[in-house]
């Protein structure tokens, strides 16, 4: 077993089943501090379920999930895990449609999340500046006061990534960030994620092989709830088992 103190995320023999169906089957996965990692796999391979387990939405039947080497995530709920420093972007872009782009980011600001604190909250100048920085990063300065519901699909994806950045998490989980994006948007998103991965650990789940290639990072192939192959994209793509899974059946 690998030394797990320098891992940001450590999953060891995790299993979960729903009504007898093993969605995750003895999955082990280690992500190092500051790493950018891509996870690919056919539909039903368990990618989203894995994210659910890490973020506390689903509790595994067996196995260990450690964050930053020593914090067990399996006992915590979503809010606690988010406040520990794990951000998650959903597959379908999910933003607060009736709030402005600015308010969406403001609500994602790192900080106290209790109702009482929220009731008397006043935005500080440096927090406003931080929001403006992120607006620039995700290229939505012009949409600042626009309702998020009126954004295009790609812009919503970026806004959601921006919301993760506001949380300033140690680990970002990004589920299919380029689904439904134009080619130009995809290229822009790859640049954005690579940029983010300079100061954060990032896990990207994606189907789009060109996009994964452009991320130029280590790749895990998930199949039937466990890791089938790990390595560079070229390596896993030439793996006969992987080819079988993707092309066979």
């Amino acid at each position: 077993m690998k030394q797990h103190t320098d891992t940001i995320l450590y999953l060891d023999s995790v299993s979960v089943s729903f009504d007898g169906f093993k969605a995750i089957n003895n999955l082990s996965l280690y992500i190092e501090q500051g790493e950018l990692r891509a996870i690919i796999g056919p539909n039903g391979a368990g990618k989203t379920t894995m994210m659910d387990i890490i973020t506390g939405k689903t509790r595994p039947d067996t196995g260990t999930v450690l964050f930053n080497g020593d914090t067990a995530l399996t006992e915590l709920d979503e809010a606690a895990i988010a406040n520990l420093g794990i951000g998650r972007k959903f597959q379908k872009p999910t933003v607060f449609e009736h709030h402005t782009v600015f308010d969406n980011l403001e609500l994602s600001l790192k900080g106290n999340r209790t109702p009482f604190e929220s009731l008397f909250f006043k935005l500080k100048t440096e927090q406003r500046d931080r929001i403006d920085d992120v607006l620039k990063t995700i290229n939505l300065q012009d949409a600042r006061n626009q309702e998020a519901g009126s954004l295009s699909h790609g812009q919503k994806q970026w806004l959601e990534i921006g919301m993760l950045l506001m949380q300033d998490p140690d680990l970002l989980l990004v589920d299919e960030p380029v689904a439904g994006m134009t080619d130009a948007e995809t290229i822009e998103t790859a640049r954005l994620l690579k940029d983010i991965s300079k100061n954060h650990s990032v896990i990207v789940v994606e189907h789009d092989m060109d996009f994964v290639k452009s991320l130029d990072c280590r790749v895990n192939v998930l199949h039937e709830g466990s890791v089938l192959a790990e390595g560079s994209l070229d390596l896993v793509q030439s793996n006969p088992e992987v080819i079988e899974v993707y092309l066979g059946r």
């Binding site: 973020t55 939405k57 979503e78 809010a79 988010a82 406040n83 951000g87 998650r88 959903f90 999910t94 933003v95 607060f96 449609e97 009736h98 709030h99 308010d103 403001e106 609500l107 994602s108 999340r113 209790t114 109702p115 929220s118 009731l119 008397f120 909250f121 919301m163 949380q167």
Partner: peptide
């Protein structure tokens, strides 16, 4: 009109998003 108000609207519109941002939806 407070930030709490914006949080409860956020919960109304996308409850799980609010949860994954670290808000304890049940307390709000």
């Amino acid at each position: 009109e407070s930030r709490l108000g914006r949080v409860i609207i956020a919960i109304r519109d996308a409850e799980s998003r609010a949860r994954f941002l670290g808000y304890r939806v049940e307390y709000y």
